[in-house]
Amino acid sequence: MAATQATSTTLIPSRLPTREKSAAMEVVEDLTYGSTAGIVGKYIEYPFDTVKVRLQSQPDHLPLRYTGPLDCFRQSIKADGVLGLYRGISAPLFGAACETSSLFLFERLGREVVYASGYCSRDRLLPLSALWFTGAFAGAFTSLVLTPIELVKCKVQVPASVDGVAPKVPSVGSVIRDVYKHEGLRGFWHGQMGTFLRESGGCAAWFGSKETTTKLFYLLNEQSATSQLEKDALATEALPLWQQAVAGASAGMSYNFLFFPADTVKSRMQTSPVGGTKQNRTFMQEGRALWNQHGLRGFYRGCGITVLRSAPSSAFIFMVYDGLKRHLPM
């Protein structure tokens, strides 16, 4: 997002708040570049996300179908082939474009809120504390956009049986029709509380960790400089690609690990059958049922593979977004 947004004492001219671009143009850039970065990241992470959802959504009171991520990969590929891991990717690709562009857009709006509050003047870079807030702000609003998309994705990834009838692989269209038929528009926001908790807390960590790691790299690079001229040059340049990748990877790993239990409960809610005899559980009811059945360990089922896949995905998202902002200004 802001790979050049923090140094020790030297402000970075290229990243200072500016009025050279109109607000409308900034919005267009956030939406366009954020969408592109999100799509690239989704192609990288989607097979791992499918495995994660299947591990999270194993039913109560039945023996676990998968012993772990590798076993889930093996069974999934044996049953459906490699392409089966990409089942339902059309909705997530759309969702990734919406999610990432919304995150960068709402993060920008969050910064405007901070400036308007008087916490920080516009002629200075935001401190890290404010950037953690803008991340939470972005995640809270993005959750409203993301919940319906994730609900459709989860139901396609993990077909549910209804009243004992063996599941069949649904299409995106059939899922949308079924949810609307049985639960109306409100049904698309089933699991909203879990998405809200994951996104608001996770995105605070996503943006915050990215900016914190970026600042540390700038400090290290500045200390290695032998002259003031070299320090000034480093302060106005983008970080080396490997440092950008590490900063982005740290963001993704923080996002996924810290609020993974909320995502687990959400996935279980969103993979419940539509139109069956069972009534949908609330967030608290689903969490209580999971705790009673599997304890704390159940909330972290699939966490390892999720954190692992988030590192390259998040690294690419930030590198693509920052690269487009830097080299293709509109």
Rank of each mutant, 00 (worst) to 15 (best):
M1F: 08
A2N: 10
T4M: 13
Q5P: 05
A6S: 14
L11Q: 14
I12S: 15
I12H: 11
R15F: 12
T18C: 05
T18F: 04
E29R: 15
D30Q: 13
T32Y: 06
Y33T: 05
G38T: 02
G41F: 08
K42L: 15
E45H: 02
Y46P: 09
T50V: 12
R54C: 07
L55M: 12
Q58W: 10
H61T: 14
L64I: 01
L64N: 07
Y66M: 01
G68H: 01
S76E: 13
I77A: 00
I77K: 05
D80F: 09
V82H: 02
L83A: 13
L83Q: 10
Y86L: 06
R87Q: 13
G88K: 05
I89F: 10
S90R: 03
L93N: 04
L93I: 15
F94R: 01
G95H: 04
A96T: 03
C98N: 10
F106G: 00
G110F: 06
S117E: 08
C120M: 03
R122V: 03
L125C: 04
L125T: 14
L125G: 13
L126Q: 15
P127T: 10
L128W: 05
S129D: 11
A130K: 03
F133M: 04
T134N: 07
A140M: 12
F141G: 03
L146W: 14
E150D: 08
L151M: 07
K153R: 11
C154F: 15
C154K: 11
K155L: 09
K155I: 01
P159A: 08
A160Y: 03
V162P: 03
G164V: 08
K168M: 04
P170L: 08
P170C: 10
S171W: 07
I176S: 07
I176M: 14
V179F: 08
V179C: 11
V179Q: 09
E183D: 12
G187I: 03
H190D: 02
H190K: 12
H190V: 00
G191T: 02
Q192F: 13
Q192G: 01
R198T: 14
R198G: 14
T213F: 14
K215N: 07
F217I: 06
L220P: 01
E222A: 08
E222Y: 10
A225Y: 00
Q228I: 00
L239R: 07
L239F: 06
P240M: 11
Q243W: 02
Q244M: 13
A245L: 15
V246C: 13
A247E: 11
A249W: 08
A249Y: 11
A251S: 15
G252D: 11
S254C: 14
F257Q: 01
F257C: 11
F257Y: 12
L258H: 01
F259A: 06
D263T: 13
T264D: 06
T264V: 04
V265K: 03
R268C: 01
P273R: 08
K278D: 15
Q279W: 00
T282Y: 03
F283L: 06
L290I: 14
N292C: 12
G295T: 02
R297S: 11
G298C: 09
F299Y: 15
G304A: 14
G304F: 02
L308K: 02
L308W: 10
L308P: 02
S310K: 06
A311T: 11
F316P: 05
I317E: 04
V320H: 04
Y321M: 10
Y321F: 14
H327M: 01
P329V: 13
P329D: 02
P329Q: 05
P329N: 05
M330N: 05
